[in-house]
């Protein structure tokens, strides 16, 4: 199997706080990997480092063998790394369809004149993203909400739209930050199926942060456990469940 994402010895300091320290992670093509850990462990910070929102204080980071260091988030997205946000960041005043259309941004190459006078590639490409956008929404059961304003969607639907939007950028690797947060058990189950399905359908690799253990253990092939910014364990779900370090981290010192 070939390596897709490789993080070597990454650290990130916020003032004196080491939010992530000596973090190592590899994700192979086609894998579905989980990242778990207590609150404040540094999981979201790791995502922010991968996606260029923050630059690591030290360490190296590469996607498909090419370094990601020093790149802007938009460039990293264009290289094939997409994400969702823990605290939902939709374009809340826009329609559901427009949210997805924005994500097709990098696949449109008509120029300003074609746009301003509505000719050439503009017509063809706009029609195309209108169609593919609606199809994508179908997968996420959002097709009849396409023209609704994003902020009016129920919470679960907003989370699904975040994933749809990330997918529309055509990523190789998808980072999901607590996609099931705030969902009820039934929605969570549907989400699990959806994640497994899109992974196969789009030949994706996925890295998933989640507090819902049944979800993580149920679909992830490998799991990394983070505590105080350091990886304390990694392995297949069955190993992680039994790992005493992990149990201690989750249940506290006395366990």
């Amino acid at each position: 199997m070939s390596i897709l994402l490789e993080a070597k010895n990454i650290s990130k300091l916020f003032g004196g706080l080491k939010a992530v320290s000596n973090f190592n992670m590899t994700i192979n093509k086609g894998e579905l990997v989980g990242l778990i850990g207590p609150n404040g462990a540094g999981k979201t910070t790791a995502f922010n480092l991968f996606t260029g929102v923050y630059q690591p204080t030290s360490g190296t980071l590469s996607l498909d063998g090419r370094s990601l260091l020093g790149m802007k988030p938009s460039q990293i997205t264009q290289r094939g790394l997409a994400r969702t946000f823990q605290n939902i960041r939709l374009f809340s005043e826009l329609s559901v369809l427009d949210n997805v259309k924005i994500a097709y941004h990098t696949h449109l190459n008509y120029n300003l004149l074609e746009a301003a006078f509505r000719f050439g590639r503009y017509i063809k490409q706009e029609r195309q993203i209108e169609e593919t956008g609606r199809e994508l929404l179908k997968i996420f059961k959002l097709e009849d909400k396409a023209d609704e304003i994003a902020k009016n969607l129920p919470y679960g639907a907003q989370r699904r739209l975040e994933i749809a939007r990330a997918l529309a950028t055509h990523p190789q690797l998808l980072l999901l930050d607590e996609p099931a947060a705030g969902m009820n058990p039934q929605e969570t189950n549907e989400l699990m199926d959806m994640i497994s399905w899109i992974r196969k359908e789009y030949a994706l690799s996925i890295l998933l942060i989640e507090h819902d253990m049944s979800l993580v253990m149920g679909i992830c092939e490998r799991i990394y456990v983070l505590e105080y910014g350091s990886i304390i364990a990694q392995g297949v779900p069955d190993e992680i469940k039994k790992n005493p370090e992990v149990i201690r981290a989750y249940l506290g010192e006395e366990a």
Partner: peptide, 26 residues
């Protein structure tokens, strides 16, 4: 026409949420 194209959508995305806009490749 500018605002109704990918150029304008990029603008509106920036207005709505700059960090998310970057994450969408804008």
């Amino acid at each position: 026409n500018y605002v109704n194209s990918s150029f304008g959508r990029a603008c509106v995305a920036i207005r709505e949420n700059e960090i998310a806009a970057e994450a969408m490749g804008v």
